[in-house]
Nucleic acid binder design. Structure first.
Lengths: 211, 211
DNA sequence: AAAAAACTAAACCGCTCAGTTTATATTGTG
DNA sequence: CACAATATAAACTGAGCGGTTTAGTTTTTT
């Protein structure tokens, strides 16, 4: 052994291990599971194939390790997305833009693609991503709704549906275009248009102010 | 030659050819492009591999042929989705349910998956699917909006955005769950809840009736 | 400096798969 | 019936890939 491995972890750690994970992340997100070759990953990581296999006994395990790491990355990304005490228009508008920037980013796009493409080769993968991303955001939104309802700023019967609707409204136009490969770069104006529209539509339905 | 091939088509026709296309469709939609093996397709089609290669000189060409056929299938599926003369609540409610049943069906799901997964192996593929499906539907919706606006039943500034929002509202909750592999069968109640919600939210924003 | 541990390049194994070939059988036509 | 076109099964080729092995080099520890 090196010098001291205090943690008898299931997941290995160390400088080379990080290199491998970093390289694997790059290649898996770019090429998917089948599309990624282990030789590619090793090259990208600047590590020999033997070393890679020394730490991760097979490709699937390496993939799941990367996926696990991406989940926590997502979790931190959804942190602080909504200002719980702000008024709805302001809070929702900010949340809309942040959500959009996340799932329109190369990161969000690739994560989604991987989930869609590999979710039946890795059952439970999609669910884990969903729980550490969209589902988490949804929970936060609902918590916000409840507060705003108490303050008399919103009137919502089905909070779950409202949260899902808001999230979907933020995907209008741009998300399909991204997924179908029609467009992959979006201007601030395009984002603003959709975000404004999402908030306006949402508030028309659930706001308490007169029309 | 057989007896007479009047059409010097780019695309071959004939009984065996149809068998091949049918088998290819089944296997490609199930397994994706890489996941599908040509032997599988030949077996599924009840045709020898040599015959298959006689008509379609390589796997990519066969795939694109299947894709082309799926596009026209989609086009016919989006036909008659919206009753142009009905009042908004009624017309939209019907359209919502029809759209949902389409993209929640195994067909819609698989088409979407293929697009997402293969759209950079086949540039332009996603665009073609989009144009013969979502985009077509969008055009129809906008045409309906214009009529309803003329009748004073709707008030919409940005019809493009409104159409996209409506489509997205129809995806609330269910579509992400489908894509992430969390759920793949949806009850009438689940569909009704989302469809009703979509119409209600849309009308709250764009309807002309008082609140 | 010596011993032990970690790392590397490269060859290799077994397998799958796209695409071809061959030799044979089936089908349709004059 | 005979002939030509079409189809078939099965074997084969060549390439790529996951994973292993080997033999040697670098790094770390004592």
């Amino acid at each position: 052994m090196g010098h001291m491995d205090i943690q008898t972890e299931t997941t290995p750690t160390g400088r080379k291990v990080s290199q491998v994970l970093e390289g694997a992340r790059t290649v898996f997100l770019r090429d998917g599971f089948e599309g990624a070759s282990v030789d590619d990953i090793a090259r990208q990581a600047g590590v020999s194939k033997a070393t890679l296999y020394n730490y991760f006994p097979d490709k699937r395990i390496l993939f799941m390790e990367v996926a696990k790491a991406e989940c926590v990355r997502q979790e931190t990304a959804t942190d602080e997305m909504i200002a719980m005490n702000a008024a709805p228009e302001k809070a929702l508008r900010t949340a809309a833009e942040r959500m959009m920037r996340l799932f329109l980013s190369p990161f969000g796009r690739n994560v989604f693609r991987i989930c869609v493409a590999e979710s039946d080769r890795f059952p439970g993968l999609g669910k884990e991503f969903w729980e550490s991303g969209p589902e988490l955001m949804r929970t936060k939104m609902i918590a916000y709704f409840r507060q705003a309802i108490d303050r008399g700023e919103l009137a919502i019967d089905d909070c779950d549906l409202a949260a899902d609707q808001f999230a979907e409204l933020c995907k209008a136009d741009l998300f399909p275009k991204l997924m179908f490969g029609i467009q992959d770069r979006f201007s601030d104006e395009e984002i603003a248009r959709v975000a404004d529209g999402a908030v306006a539509t949402f508030m028309a339905r659930y706001g308490t102010a007169q029309k």
